[in-house]
């Protein structure tokens, strides 16, 4: 033990310099070449910026809703519900979400609501929804925004992100980007009226 203690302390300090110091600085240096200098990827519209990866709460009827979140989209405290699959609390919550959705979208059928719209994500910050989750909200948004449904379907297919390389993983839609595009579409539609 005694013969090991001094080498152990010295080696620890040197490795801290190498791993926590030099390695970290190299990565930080390369990060300056990355999008937004490594401070997180952002998307801007109308002079405002948003983190494109971090999901936001969308609960207003005029927007495509995002997924339920166990932490209310608190980006300083991520997490899931951690409720077991048969926990009565979970099943009650899911039922309530279905009911709420049908109240806001009375024209939709229950069997068209995809499960991602009524279950909470793992991070509580899921930026995406499934394609079906967007489609099932089209009627509501079309009514409120006075946009024809086929234009909204067109927007959805434009914003659909294909699997990686077209081969791996699910299709999805980034809700923030979809809603930003929706706002843009609405403002363009209204522009001619002002002329």
């Amino acid at each position: 033990m005694k013969s090991n203690i001094i080498p152990a302390i010295k080696l620890t300090l040197l490795l801290i310099v190498l791993l926590s110091g030099v390695y970290t600085c190299i990565v930080l240096g390369i990060a300056q070449l990355a999008p937004n200098h490594g401070k997180g990827e952002i998307v801007s519209q109308n002079g405002k910026t948003y983190y494109s990866n971090i999901g936001q709460a969308f609960t207003a009827d005029k927007y495509f809703w995002s997924r339920p979140s166990a932490v209310d989209y608190n980006a300083a405290g991520s997490g899931g519900s951690n409720l077991g699959p048969f926990n009565p609390d979970l099943l009650k919550t899911v039922q309530a979400r279905i009911d709420t959705f049908l109240t806001h979208d009375p024209g939709e059928q229950k069997q068209d609501i995809p499960v991602d719209l009524v279950t909470a994500s793992g991070s509580g910050l899921d930026p995406d929804i499934s394609i079906q989750a967007a489609k099932v909200q089209v009627k509501r948004i079309s009514t409120i925004r006075h946009i024809p449904e086929d234009k909204l379907y067109g927007l959805i297919s434009k914003e659909t992100e294909k699997p990686f390389l077209g081969l791996f993983g699910p299709e999805k839609i980034n809700v923030l980007k979809l809603n930003l595009a929706l706002d843009k579409m609405t403002s363009q539609d209204q522009t001619p009226k002002h002329e």
Binding site: N82, T119, A120, S123, D128, P170
Partner: peptide
């Protein structure tokens, strides 16, 4: 089973 899972 999407409870606790991410869409991506």
């Amino acid at each position: 089973n999407m409870e606790g899972k991410e869409v991506r």
